[in-house]
Amino acid sequence: NKEHILAQKEVLTPIEYEHYVKHLFDIGEITKELYIELSS
Rank of each mutant, 00 (worst) to 15 (best):
Y17P: 00
F25V: 02
P14Q: 13
L24N: 01
H19W: 12
L12R: 03
L38V: 09
F25A: 04
V11T: 15
E3M: 11
T13E: 09
Q8E: 06
I27F: 06
Y20I: 03
K22A: 10
L24G: 01
E37I: 07
K22N: 10
P14G: 08
V21R: 01
E18S: 13
Q8P: 01
V11Q: 11
L38T: 02
I36Y: 15
I36N: 09
E16M: 05
Y20P: 00
K2N: 06
P14F: 09
D26I: 13
V11E: 09
E16F: 03
K2E: 04
S40T: 12
E18N: 10
S40G: 12
L38D: 00
E10Q: 11
D26M: 12
H23F: 13
H4F: 11
E18M: 15
D26N: 09
P14K: 13
L6Y: 06
V11K: 10
E37L: 12
K22S: 09
L34P: 01
N1Y: 14
A7T: 07
T31W: 04
K2Y: 10
G28P: 00
T31M: 05
T13Q: 06
H4G: 10
Y20K: 02
E37H: 09
Y17G: 00
Y35S: 02
L38Y: 06
L34W: 09
K22Q: 11
Y17H: 02
V21S: 01
A7M: 09
S40F: 15
I15A: 15
K32G: 10
E3N: 11
K22V: 05
I36A: 14
E10P: 07
L34G: 04
E37P: 01
V11A: 14
D26K: 12
K22H: 10
K2S: 07
E18Q: 08
Q8A: 08
Q8I: 10
H19L: 15
Q8H: 04
H4Q: 12
N1I: 15
L38F: 06
L38M: 05
K2T: 09
Y35V: 02
K2M: 12
I5M: 05
T31D: 12
T13G: 08
Y35H: 03
A7H: 06
L34R: 03
H19Y: 10
Y35Q: 03
A7S: 07
T31E: 08
H23L: 08
I27V: 15
H23Y: 15
E10M: 09
L24C: 02
P14H: 07
G28L: 04
E16W: 03
Y35E: 02
L6K: 08
F25L: 11
E16K: 05
L24S: 02
T31F: 03
S39I: 04
K32L: 14
S40V: 04
Y20M: 07
T13I: 04
K9F: 07
E29A: 15
E3F: 12
E18D: 09
Q8K: 11
K32V: 13
I30A: 01
K9M: 07
E33R: 06
V21D: 00
L12D: 01
A7D: 05
I27K: 11
K22F: 15
I30T: 01
H23P: 00
H4N: 14
L34V: 13
H19C: 07
E37R: 05
E37W: 12
T13P: 08
K9I: 08
K22I: 06
E10H: 08
E37N: 04
T13W: 05
I36P: 01
D26H: 13
V11G: 08
Y17M: 02
E16P: 02
L12S: 03
L6D: 03
H19P: 02
H4E: 03
K9P: 01
L12V: 04
T13Y: 04
S40W: 14
K2H: 04
E3K: 08
I30E: 00
L6I: 06
E10W: 08
E18F: 12
K9Y: 05
I5R: 01
E18R: 15
I30R: 00
K32Y: 15
L24I: 04
E29V: 08
Y20T: 02
E33K: 07
Q8F: 10
L34D: 10
H23W: 15
Y17W: 09
L24D: 00
I30N: 00
